[in-house]
Amino acid sequence: MPDADGPVLSVSGLRKVFGTQVAVDDMSFDLAPGRSLAIVGESGSGKTTVARMVVGLERPTAGTIVACGRDRSRPARNAGERTRRGREVQIVFQDPYSSLDPRQSGAAAVDEVLRVHHDHDAATRRRIVGELADLVGLDSRQMSALPRALSGGQRQRVAIARALATEPKVLILDESVAALDVSIQAQVLNVLADIRDERGISYVLISHDLAVVRQLTEDVLVMQRGVVVERGRTTDVLDEPQHPYTQRLRASVPGPGWKPTRTLRRPA
């Protein structure tokens, strides 16, 4: 790896235009190894679009994305480059129900990823599958079950295990815990914290849920209409939001003594 202390993911001047609509404009950030960055903002503010560009599912209109010292702003030119990018940045999506191939058990899914990336023999692959299952807290019965026999939280863990199979340096979590029940969400958040401690991976957490953001990340970007309007340490931004939009976002979170207020429009 080029520079061990440099950012593991670096984005600058990123822009994406769909037709006439600017979904993301002039977005820049650096992510250091082992650190976690949250991206928050209202629906349609461009968070998912940033994630999709970083993992190569969407092509940036302008700007550069560098992961592990290598540029990935353009589509991969060959299979080798494609799989190498797969070993650098991975993503877990929101919906646990569509994130897994319905015909593949968790173990088979992880095994296939390992076969695509490495030349391990069957025994080695089995060992890695077992280690990953332990890491995300699934037993072997759950790993060998088809997705439809698993709960949402279990599926999401399979998706996390699959994403971690090639030991990526960055894991993007796009609302990955939003669809989970409160009690399951806590389990998955703890699992994510353990994984970071164990593997030194970096997270990019995209979330509407400021409490989850506080729990899992050190830094935060606040987006509104495609633009970053505020950035800083998560604790600082949540405790003392500066930008009016961040303030409104923070004020919208229910808690003790909270009273909802009409801010957007009032009846004439």
Partner: peptide
């Protein structure tokens, strides 16, 4: 829209109805 899935789909899967649907 980013949150179309009902919060807490977890239990519903292991429920046979949802399982049949799924």
């Amino acid at each position: 829209m980013s949150v179309p899935v009902q919060a807490g789909v977890a239990a519903e899967v292991l429920d046979p109805v949802a399982e049949v649907e799924a």
